[in-house]
């Protein structure tokens, strides 16, 4: 079975989608075949990092959820690495009426489990990354509940600390097997090591990375995946460390069967 990772944050603006895209690209660099699902169906956006505009999305996750398309039709290859690793994106619709339709009619998120099974089979995926909607709604809880690991992204900010406490508690009640915290946008003045220790003491879970605030990242402004453009930046290396942790216990290699 493939690794299913939810990338979540309690509040918006933490760099959740950015982190998710980078993790996907770094996994592909390690030769993995990765699917990325934009489950943030009310405020989609991760397609931008892979160079797509809203208009480019002709078939989306929305079409699958309402039974208008098969899940394989919605997946498109957005990145290929030299070693054979690939990233497939299942984007959400950017059409106003389709987003409004979600609010009006809702959808059955439970169809996602079936979708994952089909995707991993037809595209021979090693990992699925889910870019979730911030906060706690039923769809997000569902994503957390079916994940083998959850990456919780937060900024060093009191509001984020408090919110993350709630999210971690809910994730525990949903019996998520692995919970990793990634601190994003940390100012250079902050002592990363002390912060890591403090958070691990508070939340009783691993802080996988403390990523410093980066002018390059800001300048890039989601126009590209950072790890792709700056493969040797300390941030990229730190994120690669998170990938290593995520892959460590669940599989043994590109063809591993964990």
């Amino acid at each position: 079975m493939a690794t299913i990772v939810s990338v979540h944050s309690f509040r918006g603006g933490t760099g959740k989608s950015n982190t998710c895209a980078n993790l996907a690209v770094l996994m592909a660099r390690r030769g993995r075949r990765v699917g990325v699902v934009d489950a943030d169906i009310q405020s989609p956006g991760i397609h931008v990092l892979f160079g797509l505009r809203g208009d480019d999305i002709t078939v989306s996750l929305n079409d699958y959820l309402w039974g208008r398309a098969s899940i394989t039709d919605t997946a498109r290859k957005v990145y290929s690495a030299e070693g054979g690793g690939e990233v497939y994106l299942i984007p959400a619709s950017m059409k106003t009426n389709e987003i409004v339709q979600v609010l009006r009619q809702g959808y059955d998120i439970r169809r996602l489990t079936e979708a994952f099974r089909e995707l991993t089979e037809t595209l021979s995926l090693d990992a699925m990354l889910i870019d979730t909607h911030p906060g706690l709604n039923e769809e997000t809880l569902f994503s957390l509940a079916i994940s083998t690991a959850v990456v919780m992204v937060l900024r060093p900010d009191q509001q984020d600390y408090e919110g993350t406490g709630v999210a971690v508690e809910v994730a525990r009640s949903l019996e998520v097997p692995r919970l990793l915290l990634v601190v994003n946008k940390a100012p250079s003045t902050l002592d990363a090591r002390a912060l890591k220790e403090r958070l691990e003491g508070t939340f009783h879970c691993t802080v996988a990375a403390v990523l410093p605030h980066s002018d390059e990242m800001m300048t890039l402004g989601s126009a590209d995946v950072f790890a792709n453009k700056y493969p040797n930046d300390p941030i990229t290396r730190a994120l690669d460390g998170v990938v290593e942790m995520l892959l460590a216990e669940t599989d043994t290699g590109p063809d591993g069967t964990a």
Binding site: G106, R110, E138, L141, F142, A145, I146, S173, L174
Partner: peptide, 15 residues
Amino acid sequence: NSVSRADILLGRLSL
């Protein structure tokens, strides 16, 4: 007032 894995996976919350 709490939520369990079964609530979510069975869709009990929305029901």
